Computed example of a mutant assay.
Amino acid sequence: MNPRVTVVIATRDRPELLRRAVRSVLAQDTAHPLEIVVVFDGCAVDPLADLPRGRHLVRTIANDRTPGLAGGRNTGILAAEAPIIAFCDDDDEWAPGKLEAQLPLLEDPDVVIAATGIRILSAGGAHDRLPPERVALADLLRSRITELHPSSFLLRTADARGGLGLVDEELPACYGEDYDLLLRAAKIGRIAAVAAPLTIIHWDRPSYFSERWRGIADGLSYLLDKHPEFARSARGRARIEGQIAFAHGALGALAPARRWARAAIRHDLLQPRAYLAMCVGLHLVSGGRVVSALNARGRGM
Rank of each mutant, 00 (worst) to 15 (best):
R4C: 11
E211D: 15
R266K: 11
R273S: 14
S143H: 15
V5A: 01
E211G: 11
E93T: 13
L106W: 06
G236F: 11
G165E: 12
R235N: 04
E93H: 13
C88R: 08
L26H: 01
G71T: 02
M278N: 01
R299Q: 14
D168R: 11
H283P: 00
A62M: 00
G165K: 12
E229H: 06
V5F: 04
V5T: 07
P96G: 11
W203H: 09
A263K: 13
L154V: 12
Q28V: 03
L164Y: 12
E107R: 13
R14D: 02
I84E: 09
R142S: 08
G54Q: 03
I9K: 05
L276S: 03
L121E: 13
I118G: 01
E93S: 14
A44F: 08
I36M: 05
T146M: 10
S152Y: 13
L269Q: 11
R20H: 12
L140M: 11
L220C: 02
V194S: 06
A296H: 03
S207R: 15
L18I: 04
N63L: 03
R258D: 11
T146R: 14
R23F: 01
D128S: 10
I145H: 12
R156E: 12
E133Q: 14
L182H: 12
F230D: 00
L26K: 00
S210K: 10
G124R: 12
A114Y: 11
P47A: 05
L164D: 11
D50C: 09
G72A: 14
E229P: 08
A160V: 11
R55I: 03
A193L: 02
T11V: 05
A263P: 03
L105I: 07
P15I: 01
D139P: 07
A21V: 07
V7N: 02
A79I: 04
C88Q: 15
P96A: 06
T60K: 00
E107P: 03
V5G: 07
D268W: 12
A296V: 00
H149N: 14
P272C: 05
L223Y: 09
A160K: 06
A234G: 03
E177D: 13
T30H: 14
S233F: 04
A195S: 15
G287A: 05
A86S: 15
G42E: 08
P52L: 13
R266S: 08
R237V: 02
A115E: 08
L198S: 05
L154F: 09
L78C: 10
D178F: 07
